[in-house]
Design a binder for these strands. Sequence first.
DNA 1: GTGTCCTTGTT
DNA 2: ACAAGGACA
Length: 459
Amino acid sequence: MHLIWFRNDLRLTDNPAFSAAVNQANQDHCPLLALFVRCPQQDKKHHRAQSQCDFWDANMVDLINRLNQLNISAMIKTVPCYENLAQLMQVLLESHKIEKLFFNREYLVNEQKRDQAVIKVCEHNNVQSCIYEPAYLLPPQSVEKKNGGMYHVFTPYKRQFIEQLKADYATPLGMPEKVTRPYTHALDSEDIKSDWQHDWWPVGEPAARKLLSEFVEHARYQQQRDYPAVEGTSKLSPYLALGIISARQCLAQALKEQGESAFQSTWVSELIWREFYHDLIAFYPRLVKHQTFKEDAMDHWQHDERIVEAWKNGQTGFPIIDAGMRQLKQEHWMHNRVRMLVASFFTKLCLQDWRIGEQHFMQNLIDGDFASNNGGWQWSSATGCDAAPYFRIFNPTTQSKKFDENGDYIRRYVPELKDLPAKNIHEPSEQQRRDCGYPQPIIDYKQARGQALDWFKSG
DNA sequence: GTGTCCTTGTT
DNA sequence: ACAAGGACA
């Protein structure tokens, strides 16, 4: 009997390990079992948002139903941490007489360590571990500079990336056939129920595929993506983070809709940013230890609990910032433009440690992805790869007027300001704030900007 | 060496 | 006009 272990690849299509496992089972005329392991303590250590854990559970339940239709039985197990996995695996391999274990590689340090330990258990038990490359656009670490080494600047990386991608991109794998030999015995599995009911994040691979095709067909991403009041972004990030759809499927859909020009599109460029940050982690594992990418970057920050709390709770007195932070709390998601604004505000204007912001995002975002989140925060705080220079400081009010001109986004998440006219809503007067019960600004922008420039310059 | 360029800006 | 400095070919 063979075993397919699902992790952050909760899909049946374009899943290399899964397709291979089904083929192998049918070739060997044996059943295939699916395994899902939950590690709540590990999730805590990684600051994984509760919303993402719940969404993972919900998608697992959905996936198991569809696995059953393919004659595949599934087991759910819970252990505290990754280090408990080897022991669990030992028991499972033995009790189910597993011959081959299939899974897709993951590139983060703890995940690699976890998998190495499991591979050892396999070897010890004479079980073959069959490991596949996850369905990135290009395999990690396959894009290098002409003289070798990882790019540290996005633009040349992207140029090279597209060149290689055009020359050789993989067509997404389809859905495998049914497994011909069902497993007929009872399985010792936990019974996890899911009561996921957020309309804006429908559960399951079919729903995700539908969101993808509708987005690619109708979106005006380039024109709309910067306006947080508009549904102009794909909102596919939670699905990408848990592998409910693959990046390759996204590209394939874009190519189908737009032809070769898709390679140059803004949205595909964002997919390449994702690969850039994932590649960086693969090349520089020290990044998972929250070290700055630039070793000599300014990295000593003020620690002001009052500011941190106001920021987290959306009480800074800057409407666009507070709208973003409250959207995060309410929807476990924040519009990308606003993510940049709140991050720039936190690090460059308030001089608070980017790691605090990074962790807060991970703890709250349904789409939390270590590499993208870390890359984004280091970009914002001028400590990272190809980062915004330290003197590039977003003016929250200017940005608000530019990208939320009518104040619709602010009104949605900061209801105490909902009756203010557009010309005041970005920067209400002292009196208006008192009347609305909205805080006075926690910092003075002009003063903070000047202070930040000095602070960064002095290193 | 040497020229060109650098995600999302501000005043 | 301005804000540094470094990556890349």
